[in-house]
Amino acid sequence: MVMEIVCPAGTPAALRAAVKAGAHTVYCGFNDETNARNFPGLNFNREEMREGIAFAKSHGAKVLVAINTFPRAGGEEMWHRAVADAEACGAHAVILADLGLLAYTAKTHPGLRRHLSVQAAAANADMINFYGTEFGVKRVVLPRVLSVPEIAAINKETEVETEVFVFGGLCVMAEGRCSLSSYATGRSPNMNGVCSPASHVEYEDNGGVLDARLGGYTIHRVGKGESAPYPTLCKGCFSAGEKTGHLFEDPVSLNAEALLPELQKAGVTALKIEGRQRSRSYVAEVVRNFRAAVDALDAGRPLPTGMLARLSEGQATTTGAYKKTWR
């Protein structure tokens, strides 16, 4: 069975580009704090969501609506309305992270398919089965901390479908638990839908030496000719003692295209591409490549490789945790 390509769309134009480029499924969010990519100029109002879903359906594709931030106590109404509107717009499923919102959705919208967001950080079969049993979750997006054998082991112990990231920005923290961004900006992905929000980002170019700051702190300084960084704390370059380097992780992107056969053998249902903040040009190019790859895999042809490094953060890629043992 062909693995499903799940593609990002930050705008209606990107959704159409993804569908036309061969996406089986597109994920997107409303233009408010209910989704974890609450960036300026991005996301969908209700009318755009309805039209986008209709467009996808007319092309045989599905749309998943990400409502994957954590509601604030006393402010749940915005999240409840988002779930109801996603169903009314015709979404194939909603992607949720919060336990309370999962319980609410299972109770009040039982016919709406539920996926578990990576923000929920369900990284073992016990947790995944709990979500499946208690809230009827049909699919889990696995955190980017698991190796391929670990994913295979999980799939042997659960009936819940698994979806794994294969391309795009690599978040190295325990997903849904990271508050690093809030230390510099007061805002975090889980509560506000933004990691290292652009409103707190500044660049200063001094004769080719580029400083990238977040909330007034210099996170990165690169010389002339080096790739420009986006100042996220986890990928910053810091000096401590006599050493200067990337303390948490290098600013590279995930590219698991070479691992597709192993992921298929591991029982993975769907392959997720990160990047709702990226352009329709990026979305179309990445989708085209991955669709060609999964179709080649299904037909027993060799995989095309090495196509996408230019589009990556730091213009370098990694296979992330899939190929390493976590210490």
């Binding site: 134009a13 580009a17 300026p40 929000p197 652009a198 409103s199 980002v201 500044e202 660049y203 200063e204 170019d205 580029l210 000719g225 080096e226 790739s227 420009a228 903040q277 990226r278 352009s279 329709r280 040009s281 990026y282 190019e285 230019r310 589009l311 990556s312 953060e313 730091g314 213009q315």
Partner: peptide, 21 residues
Amino acid sequence: GAYDGDALFFSRDLVIEGDTS
């Protein structure tokens, strides 16, 4: 839509100054 903004930014073909948001 011939180029991706982030890719141009990473390669420093595109420079952003002032209000990044």
